[in-house]
Design a protein around this nucleic acid. Structure first.
Lengths: 229, 229
DNA sequence: CCAATAGTGTCTATGAGACATTATGGG
DNA sequence: CCCATAATGTCTCATAGACACTATTGG
C-alpha cells in the first residue's frame, strides 16, 4: 500500500446482454473517435473522481443504453488492466455485466456513431476494439455459468413470464435444447425461483400457460445443470 | 470511453490464504504509516505505470510474502473502488486471492511493522484497515465456493499429498467434517483431480496412505458438494 | 492382539433424464 | 375432431451419503 502512485486512468466497460428473438445479444457502440474510430466496442466511460464504480456503471448504462436502475441486473465482472491494452496510455477497465428483458435499441450519445444490439453469433470477435472480445467472452461465460446455480435467468424476462419463456432463456444462453416437462418440474419446484401468479396467458394455439414472477431466492439449490459431460 | 480522465490511484491488495495446523489462515501486515498506522491490513501496493495488474500482484506477493510464482495459485477477485474507501484520496484496489501450501511466515519489508499469518477465526473484521474486511470476506467466500467445482484444493497442499490431507483442506476451509470413505471414492474417481503416484507414506500408527499429486484437470465434474441445504 | 488410519463394499434415498400421458385452449 | 402447447406421471439409471467391512501398518 506504499509506493509511488502512478497516473492511471480508470474506466468502466459494460457488457449489456439481452435476448432478442430468442437469441443472446449484446449492446455494441460504434466508435466515432480515435483510437479504433469506426469499429464496434462495448459501451463504457471514465470513472469520475468522486464516483463509486457501481455508480459509474449505472451512469454509462443510462447514458449509452437509456437503461435505468429498474429491471436491470448489474454485477462487476473483473478488471482488465494490461499495460498495453489502450493505445492512448494506461487505462484499466472495470468490466460490468448487465442483463435485461428484451431491451430497446438505444438512443446513442456523443462519441458514438451508432449503437445497437448484435446477435452474439454475428459478431467477429477479432473486429472489436481494445480487448473487448476478451471482456465479452468473460461475460458470456459468467452468464452461462450463473444460470446453473442462481436465479439469474429471470433477469432476461419481463416481470410476468411463462415457464416456456424461462426455458427459452436457458436454451438461448446455453445454446442447447431442454426437455419441456423436466424443466417445468425443476423450475417450479426450486424454492424461491418462481412464484405462481395464478393468472394465465391466452392460448396461442395451445393450452394457456400459467404466469409466473421471479421469486425471492438468488441461489438455485439444487442447481440446474447443463450436461457438463 | 470518452470523458475527462480523473487522477485515480490504482492499487492491488492480496488475500494470501494457507492452512496452518489445519486452520485456514490469511497473511496480514501491520501498517507502519498513516492512515491506519498500527492496524492490520492485507498486503498490497500501488500499480506501476507500465505494469500489468497480474504482474503487480506477483510483485507484492514476492516483496511482502517472499512468495515466488511457483506453487502459488493467484487469481483476481474483483475491484473495490468506492469513492470514500481510502482517506488519502481516490484509490481503487484490484483484489487478488493467492493460495499456497503451508507458507512460511514472511520477512516483511518497508512500510510494515509486522507481518504474519492469522487464523481466520482470530481476526476481528472490524479492526482491519480500509475495507479489507470486505475484501477478505469476498476471498474466503470465493475459495469456499471454488472448492466445490474446481480442483483448487490441491493448491493448499505440497506436491505430494494423501487423500486424508486433501480431505483436511475441505474440512478446514468449509468448517465441516466429511465422511472419509465417501470422500476417498469421490476424490480418486473425479477425472483429472488427483494422480496416484504409486508410493506410500510410512504409517504413523495406521495403515500407510498412498501418495497423490494434483491432476491436470481444473474443473470438478461432478462437483463435490457441501450440504447446501 | 489392539489401536489407528486407509481404502472398499453395500444399501437406500434422491434426483436427472427419457418418455408417456393427461389437460386445455384454438381452428 | 385435430393440433399445439402446458403440465404431470412413470420408469430407469446414476450418484450422494450412511455405514459396515476389510486392509495394513505400529505398538
Amino acid at each position: 500500500m506504499d509506493a509511488a502512485a502512478a497516473p492511471i486512468n480508470v474506466a468502466v466497460d459494460l457488457v449489456v446482454l439481452t435476448l432478442r428473438q430468442g437469441r443472446l445479444s449484446v449492446l455494441l457502440v460504434q466508435r466515432e473517435d480515435e483510437p479504433y474510430a469506426g469499429t464496434w466496442a462495448l459501451p463504457g466511460g471514465f470513472v469520475q473522481l468522486e464516483e463509486d464504480l457501481l455508480a459509474a456503471a449505472h451512469r454509462v448504462l443510462q447514458s449509452e443504453a437509456s437503461l435505468g436502475r429498474e429491471h436491470t441486473y448489474l454485477e462487476q465482472l473483473r478488471t482488465f488492466g494490461d499495460a498495453g491494452r489502450d493505445p492512448r496510455g494506461r487505462v484499466i477497465s472495470v468490466a460490468f455485466m448487465a442483463l435485461g428483458a428484451d431491451l430497446p435499441d438505444p438512443v446513442f450519445g456523443p462519441g458514438a456513431a451508432d449503437a445497437r444490439f448484435w446477435n452474439l453469433t454475428d459478431i467477429d470477435p477479432a473486429a472489436l476494439a481494445f480487448d473487448h472480445a476478451e471482456i465479452l467472452g468473460t461475460a458470456v461465460e459468467r452468464a452461462r455459468a450463473k444460470l446453473e446455480y442462481t436465479t439469474l435467468a429471470t433477469s432476461f424476462l419481463p416481470p410476468e413470464f411463462t415457464i416456456s419463456q424461462l426455458r427459452g432463456v436457458y436454451e438461448s444462453v446455453w445454446g442447447t435444447s431442454l426437455d419441456p416437462g423436466n424443466f417445468h418440474r425443476k423450475a417450479t419446484r426450486s424454492p424461491g425461483f418462481v412464484v405462481d401468479l395464478g393468472t394465465q396467458t391466452d392460448g396461442t394455439g395451445g393450452r394457456p400457460a400459467r404466469l409466473f414472477a421471479a421469486g425471492e431466492g438468488t441461489v438455485l439449490n439444487p442447481p440446474l445443470l447443463r450436461g457438463g459431460d
